[in-house]
Design a protein around this nucleic acid. Structure first.
Length: 549
RNA sequence: GCCGAUGUAGCGUAGUGGUAGCGCAAUCCCUUGGUAAGGGAUAGGUCGUGAGUUCGAUUCUCACCAUCGGCACCA
């Protein structure tokens, strides 16, 4: 026995044992649990001096438990809970008897887990469970899990033909026409937003001489996670960029920069590759090849606050436009291992905090979790079913420009290294699209939908008119598919509904004669008849991206 | 990377120590039908990869690869 805390929606317990649990063990353990609950064993709480508890658990061969207790400060007492002849260390409180636990629990999964969360330690066997006040709550939870499964981006990605992945390109995404349309729509939206906000978009190389990464400090820390390219006739080693900052600094360094040019905001949809551990890969959410909506703002110390503030506004507006209203912010401060003087950290943290407040954001501190070169804020959004995703970030960096020799001429005529703000709104495009898919369960708002309108004919006599309607919709900038398949209306309605196409225009002889369309909206029963021109302008208006309305 | 599970046609699945079924999709034919599956026919897999056991393996064993659930990691 090692440790078993309560967690969100349930609990887990870690065990040190030779043979791992198997899925078959779970029902057996559940039965045993029910037996114990049924027995209604009374709870008894005892308070022991820490050292007594350490000795006791050592004595009965519970080494992990003894180690755990030994890490409690000496001189403190610990509480031990008894149920019948069973006892364990616990902060409590517990029910009066095991009978009060009830039946609303379920063991959900098995996993390996490291002792004290450290991969250097022994691996334990973990059992996860969920527990609720009553059956109804448990069922509601299980239903929620099923719902989450239904909107899994990997499943929907297949169903909507958005992308695929395969063995020959592990951790990288093949974007299909539909998926890439979604990608471009998102990318163009961000491109317009940052354009308004005074960013300059650039494009930098994918391969750099390893020396650059040594200079930036990344090689030391991350070379094991970097892809390296070597060519026979070339003596130098090239590394595929895992991030864009050094490249952006090279652009900054071209020519002499004056303080008058600051803040200089360089943005790139930067393709990065990182050799992520195999076990970390997850659909398109965690990949080895990804694109960041990256930008670096080169500025003076004085400009940090304003730049941070306007970035927060930019980010929140973007999240709102993309359908996310609930955002939490964490401010991570100086870590133990860091560079730069405390005075500079004071300045950076102060500026960041002030700016975050100025942007009207509530935030919590994440002390000691900042990057080694500076503090950062992280933006976590909440999706339609309450899950949280960390996407955006802003980091204040006093280090990299200096290390890579970037300077500007200040008002005083001297050279100074600029402050560099690393920032991303969506973070990784791949991951964010994954989040969008799950947030909307594939039912995207019209402006994002890969296919916005399906035109389906009832009879072949309407084919000519349908082609005309499709052409008119396309001319209005809408993304349209034409379905003249030899099938029933029922079948076509079903197909396009399952494809999650937001609008379906059904055309038969009636429509062709009157130059009208019959519009059915996804998720709405029934349909309305509209004049062709009216329908097109209505749909075109609805399809305008939020920033262009 | 670690622990465990999984890997069968485009997708979803069944099954077996003697060379694989089903549904959807696809193709063709019939049907031209008004808002969530009209009917029929045809074609498509050698069962993740490699090795071993065996007279014989998709089925058993091992290794590898990938995926999935966690752990660890995430510049």
């Amino acid at each position: 026995m090692t440790i078993g805390p309560a967690i969100e929606d349930g609990f887990y317990y870690d065990f040190a044992r030779e043979t791992p649990f198997t899925p078959d063990d779970l029902p057996k353990i559940e039965d045993k649990m029910r037996e114990i609950i049924k027995a209604g064993l009374p709870t008894r709480r005892e308070v022991w001096p820490r050292d007594k508890a350490v000795e006791h658990f050592k004595g009965i061969g519970e080494a992990f438990k003894a180690e755990l207790i030994a890490s409690i400060p000496a001189g403190e007492d610990v509480s031990i809970y008894w149920h019948g002849d069973w006892h364990d260390l616990c902060r409590g409180p517990h029910f009066r008897t095991t009978a009060e636990i009830g039946d609303a629990f379920k063991l959900t999964k098995i996993s390996g887990a490291y002792w004290r969360g450290d991969a250097k330690n022994a691996q334990l066997q973990r059992i996860y469970g969920t527990a609720w006040r009553d059956k109804k709550e448990l069922d509601a939870y299980l239903t929620r899990m099923e719902e989450a499964e239904k909107r899994d981006h990997r499943k929907i990605g297949k169903e909507m033909d958005l992308f695929h992945m395969q063995e020959e390109a592990v951790g990288q995404v093949f974007w299909h026409p539909n998926g890439h349309t979604l990608w471009r729509t998102l990318e163009n939206y961000i491109r317009r937003r940052i354009g308004e906000a005074g960013y300059n978009e650039i494009k930098t190389p994918l391969l750099f001489d390893r020396k650059l990464w040594e200079q930036s400090g990344h090689w030391d820390t991350f070379h094991q996670n970097m892809f390296v390219a070597e060519v026979e006739d070339e003596s130098r080693t090239l590394a595929v960029k895992p991030m864009n900052c050094p490249g952006h600094i090279q652009v900054f360094k071209q020519g002499t920069k004056s303080y008058r040019e600051l803040p200089l905001r360089l943005a790139e949809f930067g393709s990065c590759h990182r050799y992520e551990p195999s076990g970390a890969l997850h659909g398109i959410m965690r990949v080895r090849g990804f694109v960041q909506d990256d930008a670096h703002i080169f500025c003076t110390h004085e400009q940090i606050t304003d730049e941070t503030k306007s970035f927060c506004e930019l980010l929140l507006r973007a999240y709102r436009d993309l359908g996310f209203d609930q955002v939490t912010v964490k401010l991570s401060t100086r870590p133990e291992k860091r560079i730069g003087s405390d005075a500079v950290w004071d300045l950076a943290e102060g500026a960041l905090e002030k700016a975050t407040r100025a942007a009207g954001l509530d935030f919590t501190f994440n002390h000691g979790e900042g990057a080694f070169y500076g503090p950062k804020i992280e933006f976590t959004l909440t999706d339609a079913i309450g899950r949280e995703w960390q996407c955006g970030t802003l980091q204040v960096d006093f280090n990299m420009p200096d290390r890579l020799g970037a300077t500007y001429i200040g008002e005083d005529g001297n050279k100074h290294p600029p402050v560099m703000l690393h920032r991303a709104i969506v973070g990784s495009m791949e991951r964010f699209i994954g989040v969008l898919i799950e947030h909307y369960a594939g039912k995207f708002p019209l402006w994002l939908a890969p296919v916005q309108v399906a035109v389906a004919t009832v009879v072949a006599d309407a084919d000519t008119y349908a082609a005309e309607v499709v052409a008119a919709l396309k001319a209005a900038g809408l993304r349209v598919v034409l379905d003249t398949e030899n099938q029933t209306v029922n079948y076509k309605v079903r197909q396009h509904s399952l494809a999650k196409t937001p609008n379906l225009l059904v055309l038969g002889r009636r429509e062709a004669e009157n130059r009208t369309v019959t519009l059915r909206k996804l998720g709405v029963e029934g349909q309305e008849s509209l004049a062709l021109e009216a329908a097109i302008s209505k749909l075109a208006a609805e399809a305008v991206p939020p920033d262009l309305r």
